[in-house]
Design a protein around this nucleic acid. Structure first.
Lengths: 130, 130
DNA sequence: ATTATTTTTGCAACAATGTCGCATTTTATA
DNA sequence: TATAAAATGCGACATTGTTGCAAAAATAAT
C-alpha cells in the first residue's frame, strides 16, 4: 500500500513529513529508531516532528514498538499476524520481525491476564551467519 | 543467598555500594531501573556508581535486563530457569518474572541462530485484577 | 476558489537516562 | 602493614524523550 493511502486509511492528514517517514518504513525491513529516521531526513524534518509522528503512528496502529533491552525505542510497520516474534542480531545490531514463525500460547498463572506480547529472540541473523 | 556470598561467588570485590544494591534486589520481586534504586539510596550511593554497578552485575550475570518498549532499562536477579517469561502490568506498571511458566521452543527461519530470548507479556497482574 | 478553522511543524528549552575521565578513597594482595 | 588494583564521587556531556508556543500548512466551510 502506498504511503498516502495508509494515511487516508487511518484518517491522518497528509503532510510531507508523514509521507517521508512512512516511505522510509515502507522501504526498510528493519526496526527503526527516531535517530535512524532523523539521519535519513536531515534538513527535511525536525526532531520534534519525527518524535510526534512516531507517537501518532503508534497510537493509530500504523507502527508498533519493539521491546529491547536497550534504551532506544524502535518501531516497525504493523503486519500480519499481529503477534509475531522479533529478532535482534548481536552481530549487525539490526532488529526485525519474523512473522513467519508460528506463535505459541502460554498459560499464565492465575490472576494474570494478557493483552498483548512482545517476544524478542536474540542471536545472529541469516545475513551475519555466513 | 546472602548479598555478600553472591559477590564472592561472582568474584566481585565487596563494597558497601554493591551490598546495598544487591540487598535491594534481594528484597524486591519486581524489575528495577537505575532510578528505582537511586530513590532508595539517596545520599548513600552516587548515580554513576549505581550505573556502573548495574552494568557490572549484568556483565557478570548476577542480574539480567528485561526488554520493554520504553526507554528505561530494568533489571532483575537471574533465576532458574534461565529462560522465562516476563510480565508487565499496564495497571501498576510493575515488571516481574514468571519463572513458573514453561517456555516453548521456536523453529527459526533458516540462517537464524538463537543465543537467548527475552519474552514480555503485557496485561494486568494478579494484584490489579481484583 | 477563497476564507476560516484545525492540525502540524519548527524552534527552543528542559528532564531523564546513559556514559566517561579523573582524582580520591576503598578493597584486595603481597 | 605497605602496595597494587579496583571502586567511588564528582562533574561534564551525549542522547532520547517531551512540551509550549508562534508560524505554516492542511482540511473544512462558505
Amino acid at each position: 500500500m502506498k504511503a498516502k493511502n495508509i494515511l487516508l486509511k487511518y484518517n491522518l492528514s497528509i503532510t510531507t513529513g508523514r509521507l517521508n517517514i512512512l516511505e522510509i518504513f515502507l522501504n526498510n525491513e528493519m526496526a527503526l529508531s527516531e535517530k535512524d529516521i532523523q539521519d535519513k531526513l536531515i534538513g527535511v524534518c525536525d526532531r520534534a516532528t519525527i518524535y510526534r509522528t512516531l507517537k501518532k503512528f503508534k497510537d493509530t496502529g500504523i507502527v508498533h514498538p519493539i521491546a529491547t533491552e536497550g534504551m532506544i525505542t524502535k518501531y516497525v510497520l504493523k503486519k500480519e499476524p499481529e503477534e509475531h516474534l522479533h529478532f535482534k542480531c548481536t552481530d549487525c545490531g539490526k532488529i526485525m520481525c519474523l512473522p513467519e514463525v508460528q506463535m505459541k500460547n502460554y498459560e499464565l498463572p492465575s490472576g494474570f491476564t494478557k493483552k498483548e506480547s512482545n517476544f524478542l529472540v536474540i542471536g545472529t541473523c541469516n545475513n551475519c551467519n555466513n
